[in-house]
Design a protein around this nucleic acid. Structure first.
Lengths: 216, 216, 216, 216
DNA sequence: GATGAATGAGCCTTCATTCAT
DNA sequence: TATGAATGAAGGCTCATTCAT
């Protein structure tokens, strides 16, 4: 309270852990190294966390959950729309949520670097896969809806959708992984979205409504 | 001599290593566990390989190199074509090499599961990234060529190309990662290619020649 | 708190290490054996030292450095004297420093047994050689001084001086190596010094000033 | 017989062993390394020798024994002389045997480097000590003889003799250890002998007959 | 005489975690 | 809340030597 310069024990542990996990990955990271860097003792550490895994979770858990919730919530909302409305809104909703995620990634860059590249051996290793799976499910349901609405949609296997969705997520992640500047990344993401929209239209044989591209 | 069932020591080591690496990843895999499963002593193991890393390399090195060479060779050849020829052939060349890679992935499924998902801590951890980088470079060069040929191509930043290429590769990998049947996977990949072609056409504002889609 | 008999962990490690190194030499000594004898685990050991080598150093480092400094300091001081003064004091200074070293050897007998006979594989393996080299340099300088002062000194090659100095040091070490009683050793050392003085006088063709031998 | 270029298996083993022992010392030397360098298999090696120790012995045994016999034989012969004769001959006999040893050292330089500096862990570690002990015994006996002959010899403790003899041997060894040229080494050794003679005369209070120093 | 795969004990070192203080 | 010594299992790896061929 008196001075803001001094970091609390916990803060020092977090900082040291972030650096160590980032440098070596979860498995190769050494807890002893972390506490040494943090300038605390092992005993002190175990007063805060029960294990190395718990420490990793503390570092990334909230952010991961936030994105998961953000994405799933958006998808849930989308699924409650009517079919026509879905087609009309799809592009914008998608663009919106992707942009939000991108922003959140950049707001918590270190954290998501950990999640996306250093989580092998933790339950966050399949973070991306979780998002993709939810996306696939939603897209599949949407396709069913289209069919029910009498639109002649080419039948697509869930696996294709998975492959596409996985690619989209992968592309999204490259922005922070390769340290692209945030504003540029937003540009890229919008281009990527146009790319994917065109792809979906090609595959489904339909056309989405979008404002960002009036022509044709 | 009597039966063919007996495996050689090396074969047993390989089998045990494949299983252990697959289960725990390179770092967490235990050499002691591997040799125990293989039914040999550590000393015996070191008669074959110099280190845990060398063992991993023996398991995946050739296959990784093969794909790298296959892909880079194809890209090299493509880059030596004339601009017009490139545009005409792009789709087919691309489809062809992707199909070859897919086939090779399935011919060596266990191996590529290791490379793609369990290589953290080895030099194969960036296998995908290497391919993507080469692809990006080639695409960028192609864009320059188009520009020189007088085609009005929308200027694309390397990073966007990277994001797209990374997504394509990611999609390709999902086939074996999620254990899709080979023949189905080929179908999916062809659809994915249509998807990506449409995406590129959208982004670049051009149209590729392809037989698989006469209409329009 | 209750009794003084209980040794600390570190003391037990030191004692066990001293015994093991003494018995087998640095290289052949087994850390596992040391910690077993000390009644601790390997982990406990590495809380104190970073390596087997660090343990050896902890056992002998200070003592080795002390003698090195004592000797070099004395030699440095000697070299700052004037030539005449040097000749006059040589015997006494030499006797004094040798006696001091002998005493220090005996005060730390176990330690110097390690340094002098069990240090192969460590940086202390050339402890004696270091002292000898310094002695040789000093003697050589003294010879030059004599020459400058106009004394007809027979020219001696550095190598001869090295051989003599090495012998003197070797003789000195035999006292503790062969477990001679300290007081007797002092007697022997004084005789050895008379021996070496006579040798030098013969070789250099001069005569040192000394009180212990008035006659002749 | 046909070609002299090809080395036999045994010769290659010897050469590799010499190099490995020289580089790392007996204990740290790796037999596997030796056979690899020699280009043979471990099995082949064990056809020649029963152990690493046996190999070391094969390399140095004969030479060590030769010097031991040469020295002890000389001392034995000396001890059979009459007292007066001993005093008269001492210097020459001593010089002669030292020169012979020096020559033999140089004739088998690699071998004696092994014996004198790399034998820790073998029975040759105390090679020097053995020579010294014999020398001490002889000198002590000689002193007794002198006493019996009525010469007023200052009583010397065996330990002093040991210290002196040890120094002499140490000086002798420095020649090959420090790679002094053979002919120079001989010069140095003669100077060393004058040094030691003067020392003994001082200590015993007698005078040896020697030709190399007529004066006085 | 030679092979070379295999042994099995041993090497030094690091790990995440516990617990008495 | 914190200490820090200690645990005990496990890590990858090397050793001299053996033995069926």
């Amino acid at each position: 309270m008196e001075g803001q310069k001094e970091q609390s024990t916990l803060e020092r542990i977090h900082a040291a852990a972030q650096a160590e996990f980032m440098e070596k990955g979860f498995h190769a990271a050494s807890l002893r190294n972390i506490v040494k860097t943090a300038g605390v003792t092992t005993g002190a550490f175990y007063g805060y966390y029960d294990s190395k895994e718990a420490l990793f979770e503390a570092l990334v858990g909230d952010a991961a959950e936030y994105v998961l919730n953000l994405f799933c919530g958006t998808v849930d909302d989308f699924e409650e729309m009517e079919g026509e409305e879905q087609t009309r809104q799809m592009f914008d909703v998608s663009q919106d949520v992707l942009m939000q995620i991108l922003d959140y990634f950049y707001d918590n860059k270190d954290t998501f670097m950990l999640i996306l590249t250093r989580a092998e051996g933790t339950k966050y290793a399949d973070f991306g896969h979780q998002l993709v799976v939810r996306e696939v499910e939603s897209t599949y349901t949407y396709m069913e809806t289209l069919k029910k609405m009498g639109h002649p949609v080419e039948p697509l296997n869930r696996n294709v959708i998975h492959m596409v969705a996985s690619g989209m997520f992968s592309g999204l992640c490259e922005t922070i992984i390769h340290d692209m500047p945030r504003e540029e990344a937003k540009e890229y993401l919008m281009q990527l979205q146009r790319f994917y929209s065109a792809g979906w239209e090609e595959l489904l044989g339909i056309r989405f409504g979008r404002e960002s591209k009036e022509s044709e």
